[in-house]
Design a binder for these strands. Structure first.
Lengths: 201, 201
DNA sequence: GTTCGTATTGGGCGAATGACCAAACGGTAG
DNA sequence: CTACCGTTTGGTCATTCGCCCAATACGAAC
């Protein structure tokens, strides 16, 4: 029953990673400190510098791990949709359904900004995003005859990212139906969604 | 020639505001400190708390002032364009022409994130963005027959915002032609821009 | 020239920070 | 039982933080 010391170490390691993600979201990348993470993970401050050489190392690992999981899940939502407009509507519903301080998006934005100043983070996150963009382009290509899948995927991804950020700022935006313009982005006609109120020409 | 003490005070006040904006961009909102701002402004640390009660107050004032100027300038670029696709192309050209660490955009993102945790910043920035969105919707309404101006303006603004964030991460994205999908967003046909390489259906 | 008010100086406070380390702990293997 | 090793403890280190304040500089008003 007693836990192996190695597995126990792995456990506190993941607890530290979780604590780091929570704190990045709650207080911002720059405000996360050794002691806050240690407190939340229920360990002493010294443990942080045992498992991770530096606070920055811990933050980078934590953010990348969490974002990889989150982005792959979002991709899964897209994949199981019937066509482009349905997929976008589904994704929008998920995003707009988030609470005011949606953890995933704040984490994404915080990490994006931090990557401006941490090279390892920038390169790894850049690779992750490129992978995601490629998958989204493939998805667009397969389902419908979207004109320029690569560029469309880039704009679509950026739009969704920016949209949640703007919704964070102005909750009223959340109630507007945005599916129309977004599906128009894909160049496909058809707006079968319920939340759609405009004629879309 | 000797300056009035009141105008001298106003001068160092704006120098502090400028220093704050620079430091937010360079090191991130959370890493800006009293002494760094004072150093860059060429004054002693005590001055900061003479002109501004709190470091946060200084940061909020500085970010809002700078963003107001920047966003209004961007709106001017839009206004003097002939039609929707031309305006979007112009704006994209400006954004993609920025250097890797474009001050205006990083500032925007930093402020957006900080507004999650500072209520005064959130409400004022939210008002500013709503004003901008309204102006963009008016512009869309006047130039072309865009289906749903309000929602389209929201998505367009978010897309541009998110796009620059993504370009920050992956400079290679900057070289892709994104005007096609973006103009498609407006529902108008016509892609007269030079950097356009796709058939757009 | 004296007074007055704003602007600025320079020092200092307690608290918090990142980093580091010697010692103790607790299973596992010999 | 003993030796070993990954893990954790509890603390120290120099540094930096936001904020405060008494003293000073200096042009304007009298």
């Amino acid at each position: 029953m007693a836990t192996d010391s190695a597995t126990r170490g792995a456990h506190t390691r993941t607890r530290l990673l979780d604590a780091a993600v929570q704190l990045i979201v709650e207080e911002g990348w720059g405000a996360v400190t050794t002691r806050k993470m240690a407190d939340r993970a229920g360990v002493r401050a010294g443990v942080v510098h045992y498992h991770f050489g530096t606070v920055t190392d811990l933050l980078v690992d934590a953010a990348l791990d969490a974002l990889r999981r989150e982005l792959m899940a979002a991709l899964g939502v897209l994949r199981e949709a019937r066509d482009a407009s349905a997929g976008i509507a589904d994704l929008l519903a998920v995003l707009q359904g988030y609470s005011p301080e949606d953890p995933a998006t704040v984490l994404m934005s915080e990490t994006l900004l931090a990557s401006t100043r941490i090279e390892r983070l920038r390169s790894e996150l850049s690779g992750l995003m490129r992978e995601l963009r490629g998958a989204m382009a493939d998805w667009l290509r397969a389902r419908d005859s979207v004109p320029d899948p690569e560029a469309t995927a880039a704009v679509l991804g950026a739009a969704l990212d920016g949209l949640v950020l703007h919704c964070l700022l102005d909750p009223e935006l959340r109630t507007t139906s945005l599916a129309g313009p977004l599906t128009r982005l894909t160049g496909t006609e058809e707006t079968p969604d319920d939340t759609d109120r405009d004629g879309t020409r």
